[in-house]
Nucleic acid binder design. Sequence first.
DNA 1: GCGTTGCGAAACTCAGTCGTATCGAAATCA
DNA 2: TGATTTCGATACGACTGAGTTTCGCAACGC
Lengths: 213, 213
Amino acid sequence: MKTQQTAEVAARPAGRPRSEKAERSIIEATLELLGEGIGVSELSIESIAGRAGVGKTTIYRRWSNKEDLVVDALATLKPPIPLPQGGTVRDDLVTYLRVIQEESRHHRTRCIMNIAMSDSERHPRLAERFRELAVEPRRAVVTAVLRRGMETGELRADLDLDMALALLSGAMIWSTKWSHSGDPQADLPERIVDEALKGFRPRPSTPEPCPEL
Amino acid sequence: MKTQQTAEVAARPAGRPRSEKAERSIIEATLELLGEGIGVSELSIESIAGRAGVGKTTIYRRWSNKEDLVVDALATLKPPIPLPQGGTVRDDLVTYLRVIQEESRHHRTRCIMNIAMSDSERHPRLAERFRELAVEPRRAVVTAVLRRGMETGELRADLDLDMALALLSGAMIWSTKWSHSGDPQADLPERIVDEALKGFRPRPSTPEPCPEL
DNA sequence: GCGTTGCGAAACTCAGTCGTATCGAAATCA
DNA sequence: TGATTTCGATACGACTGAGTTTCGCAACGC
């Protein structure tokens, strides 16, 4: 009898149920601290508990170690990038890079990105979560845009999609990080997209890309 | 009299001179630990002293804080990239990317790169040192290669050099970090360079880049 | 009401690190 | 030889954080 009851799917365990509010506070506090530049290794359970207004016990009851907590916290980050879909391929790509650029202005996003780039070496599960949360959605969006361009003839039919994504995203990150001047570089997305679209080689005199169309 | 002597340039201070060997051990130990994946924030003076076989005093006597030590340690890293100069622009660029790719295979280099990407947020002097040590030499080499190509007509005369460098280097880093498969990707340099050279737009039928030459 | 479980707060032990101080030995110069 | 400085080693007090335990109270089912 008892066995049947406890085996039920929705069998509520006896006693006071765990507070969802506390759980949300803990995760929010974790993200806040990470967003303030605290690295994963420096992140302490005590600081999280203090920030969340929660006892350490409440954290340890839910997560057995820091990595689990951070992984779960990152999982709640919603990818804030919808599709820029709409105009020409060039316009869409510029829009895409502009969103990335805008994100990298926010301190919080930059810190999270740093964790993704750096701590993923020591925390494979973090890296996996990041790929799933941030990289993959962006890859899907850009791939869709590029594929459309290949169909309309706006792009080469034999374009290497993975390389195209790497060139665009990589260039954006590199420029943001290492461009010698600290200026805002407002036209960065346009410059990247235009260079990528044109390529490095000279065009054979005629400015018209598709003469016979 | 005495004042004149102590004012001399090469006036050796009395007492036992500082050991150069200890200094080298300290710096080497620092680089070793960083190369093993220890982040700057987790790096402890005690662990450095232990690894170097040196008393903590010997470290504190030379560097007043950890950041100074790390900056000095990084300064001893010789940029192992000479010029790949030689063949066509395409070949030189492929060679350049291949060196980066080869570097990123070594755990030590990867860790140092992670520090550059991530800790530069909190340690501006580290970022500065990195730009000077790693970014700037590479920029110079690639810029020279590209400029040569622009002169010979192998590349567009109005090429945006900064963007070209960002596209190439950024794509390499992005691919190494986020390419979905964990495979070696031996042909990555070729693929990146070829996509970058060709650009995304279709060529106007003729495969000959410069008909009138 | 009673048993059970979660809550926040506080105390605890254990370990690591910091930066300083002290020690005897070693290295250098006058 | 003696003064001076560095050497590695060790100890020190202060601090921080981990992970556990205890406490009194709150929330739930029965």
